[in-house]
Structures are given as structure tokens and as C-alpha cells.
């Protein structure tokens, strides 16, 4: 459904961030995008959602297609209307609005009837029962995990066909990460929303996804079915923190790591 074809992204007309990224999200799939800091993962997501432009970024080459339609020249609100919603990194919500108001902002563009909105809210609350309890609280005072729920719930209110999730696990306790990812999988299965997930936590991301891409320095360097990547020696070493034997890595091998990274990039 989403096809990114060999795109190049430039910030402020000079800084080349993506150099020929191609990837594909099939209908109903969960696809993971892994990579170190600064590899260009978030930029890839913003290229899709159109949010690049407000940061002086631009897709200078290649194309992005959604259901066969070019979207790389469209405004962010048009792209949301087409069914692509990005959940930004760092769970930014509208702090001074209540939880329910935050959720409602996600549906603003649809101009839905109040009763339909009620139903959509109930659907979000069924995924995140915690939020129903806090619906009238000021969102800024929620805990990190609850804020992440609000942000995902808000995206869900847009009735998207494709969700772009930018590091949903950022700064959350391992247990919470597990439960957030469980809900993400449920949303994918029950509401049929396709997902493109950017993650540093390669472990969880590879478990939940069907296919994964690995980025380094603005390029895709590796891709394949997640189950296969989990067994890939490089992935194990660089992203899962295991040596080839499957033990925790020691820092003695950092030199080797550097050498391998250069080769990969």
C-alpha cells in the first residue's frame, strides 16, 4: 500500500539526510525500521507524512506512493486525510487539553457526527482502559506510558489505514513497552491498520513485525523477514547486543564493531 521509491531528502537545501531509501509496507502488515541515532529513520517517516516541509526539509528525488498515488508533494493535512497518520517521537500531546480533548483533536479533520465520535472514543478506550478513567484529566500531568497511550489513541481517532510510529518505546519501562506493543499488534489485527514502526529497541520491533529494514547513514543496508533478521549475525551483534555465540557483548570488541559498521555504511 505504501511504496517509497529511492528517495533523497535534503534539509535547508544543503544537508543530504536520505540517500536513496526504498521500502514497502504491504496492506495490513507491520514493518519495522531499525537503525542507530541519526540514521534517518524519523526523516523517512516525516517524508511520508509530509511533516518534513515545516522543518525546511524536502524530498528532492524519488517518489512516495500510497495506493498508487504520489503523495510526496502533498501537504500534511491532505496526507492525514488520505489515511496516513504519524505518531511523533517523544509522545508530544496537547498538554493543556484534557485526555478526551486530545483524542478528539485526532478526529477533527473528519467532521464526524457526535455519535460516531462517541463510538470512536469508546474504541480507543477499549484498547486503553486506563484512558477512560483519566478522560477529564489535563493530559500534561499523565505519566509517560499514559501519554504514549493518548498519542496512539489520538492517531487511532483519525481512522487511519497506515500508522507511522516513531519510537513508541522511548523512555518507557520494559513491562510498559511490552504492553504498548501488544496493543499495537491488537490495533493492527482488530482494526486492520498497517504499521510502519521506527524503533531503537530492535528486540521488540523484530518480534512484532513481519518485515524489517535496517538503516545506516541515510541508506537501507539490510532488509528481510523479521524472523530471518533475528537470526542474522550482524543484527544480533549490532542491534540485539549479542555476540555470535549468543552471549552478551564485551566492550573489548568495540574496535571490531567500528570496522564492521564502516563496512556496512
Amino acid at each position: 500500500m505504501l511504496r517509497i521509491h529511492n528517495i533523497e531528502v535534503v534539509y535547508s537545501d544543503v544537508i543530504l539526510v536520505l540517500r536513496g531509501v526504498s521500502l514497502e509496507v504491504p496492506q495490513g502488515a507491520i514493518v519495522a525500521l531499525l537503525g542507530a541515532n541519526g540514521a534517518g529513520k524519523s526523516t523517512t517517516l516525516k517524508a511520508v507524512s509530509g511533516l518534513l516541509r515545516s522543518q525546511q526539509g524536502e524530498v528532492t528525488r524519488g517518489s512516495i506512493e500510497f495506493h498508487g498515488e504520489r503523495i510526496d508533494r502533498r501537504a500534511p493535512d491532505e496526507i492525514v486525510r488520505m489515511g496516513i497518520v504519524q505518531v511523533l517521537e517523544g509522545r508530544p500531546l496537547f498538554q493543556h487539553l484534557t485526555v478526551e480533548e486530545n483524542l478528539l483533536t485526532g478526529a477533527l479533520f473528519r467532521k464526524a457526527a457526535p455519535r460516531a465520535l462517541r463510538q470512536d472514543l469508546d474504541e480507543v478506550y477499549s484498547y486503553f482502559p486506563r484512558l477512560a478513567e483519566f478522560r477529564h484529566r489535563t493530559a500534561g500531568y499523565l505519566s509517560g506510558g499514559e501519554q504514549q497511550m493518548v498519542v496512539i489513541g489520538r492517531a487511532l481517532m483519525a481512522k487511519p489505514r497506515l500508522m507511522l510510529l516513531d519510537e513508541p518505546s522511548l523512555g518507557l519501562a520494559p513491562l510498559l513497552v511490552q504492553s504498548i506493543f501488544q496493543v499495537i499488534r491488537r490495533i493492527n489485527q482488530e482494526s486492520g491498520v498497517s504499521m510502519l514502526i521506527v524503533e531503537q529497541n530492535a528486540n521488540v520491533a523484530l518480534q512484532i513485525s513481519e518485515h524489517a529494514y535496517v538503516m545506516e547513514l541515510g541508506r537501507i543496508v539490510l532488509d528481510g523477514p523479521s524472523a530471518e533478521l533475528q537470526e542474522n549475525a550482524d543484527i544480533k551483534e549490532f542491534y540485539l547486543g549479542l555476540t555470535q555465540v549468543g552471549e552478551r557483548k564485551s566492550y573489548r570488541e568495540v574496535k571490531h564493531y567500528r570496522r564492521r559498521k564502516r563496512w556496512l555504511g
Binding site: 507524512s49 511533516l51 515545516s54 501537504a75 500534511p76 493535512d77 492525514v80 486525510r81 497518520v85 504519524q86 505518531v87 511523533l88 508530544p92 500531546l93 496537547f94 498538554q95 493543556h96 487539553l97 480533548e101 478528539l104 483533536t105 485526532g106 477533527l108 479533520f109 467532521k111 489520538r154 492517531a155 483519525a158
Partner: peptide, 22 residues
């Protein structure tokens, strides 16, 4: 609805864009 869009926009332009507010 428009009032809510305005309040949301005042808090964070980028996030407002990301939820489809013009």
C-alpha cells in the same frame, strides 16, 4: 470543533499538523 483546533494549534504547531489540522 474549530475552537478545539485553535487550542490544539496554540500548543504545538507540528503536532497539530500531524493530526491533520490545517
Amino acid at each position: 470543533r474549530t475552537g478545539l483546533a485553535m487550542r490544539a494549534t496554540s500548543e504545538n504547531h507540528e503536532v497539530a499538523q500531524s493530526v491533520g489540522i490545517n
